[in-house]
Amino acid sequence: MAATADWNGVIARRRDEIIQGWLNFLRAEGALQTGRIKDAELQSECGRVLALVAPDLAHAGDRSPASDELSQTLSALSRSRALQGFTPSETANFVLGLKPALFGAVAAEYAGQGDLIAAATLDATRKLDRLALITIEAYQRSREEVIIRQQREISELSTPVVKLWDGILALPLIGTLDSERTQVVMENLLQSIVDTSAEIAIIDITGVPTVDTLVAQHLLKTVAAARLMGADCVVSGIRPQIAQTMVHLGVELNVVSKASLADALALALQRIGKRVTDVPQALAAPDYSR
């Protein structure tokens, strides 16, 4: 069997030198520039990871007994990097930055044994690349978690159901409607209909930038569900361009629709037997501004 590098030995003997090399690389890459992380913090992270990398490198196979702890540590590290606002490259560079320092140490340790250095370098490259991928994946995952949480928050925030009159509700929709958000919107509206015993719900889409086939379908489903519960829906605020696009796309929206929220409210009041009229000047409320 060919001689292999004694990684545990190399790292134990040249630990300070490797960490210094690693830190220099990271500093040169600008890891500290933004001030999001301190030098001492970086130094302790390097030390902690190096201690776990050593047994992993020394292990002949792909997964050493230290692999799990190592990937957990790196994942936790990337998660905090993601939350602190580091870029994916900066996050991956943390692990990759260990390479030059390690290679330097091996070259110094085994000077003159070219084959051994080449084999060790190749092996370390493979393992460190895999670790870099782990950090990227963890980074990506935590970004996705953030996005999902924000989506949920946005959809909750952006779907208020307001009562305009006894028996009349309005749902002013703002922003793009996707399937998930529409489901939340739909459930909110229908529950509010029950809670307030509303007879008519006005869905105002003035703030919706585009209405495609899918959105139209969602709207129709909401209207159909409200009807099943015994309430009518009126759609208001379809902008001219949207109306035109919908006709061109062949999207049919077979619902009662009104140009503005005001028109829809007038219709709703009429349906529940109310009317808005002008008050004669003499009976009008006094002008308090004087």
């Binding site: 229908l190 029950v194 007879e199 519960m229």
Partner: peptide
């Protein structure tokens, strides 16, 4: 109920021949 209404619409039944009230 709202959940029943949503499900019924998704199922493809709109009960057009039936009148409804809250």
């Amino acid at each position: 109920r709202p959940a029943v209404a949503i499900t019924l619409v998704e199922l493809g039944l709109s009960l057009t021949g039936v009148k409804t009230a809250l």
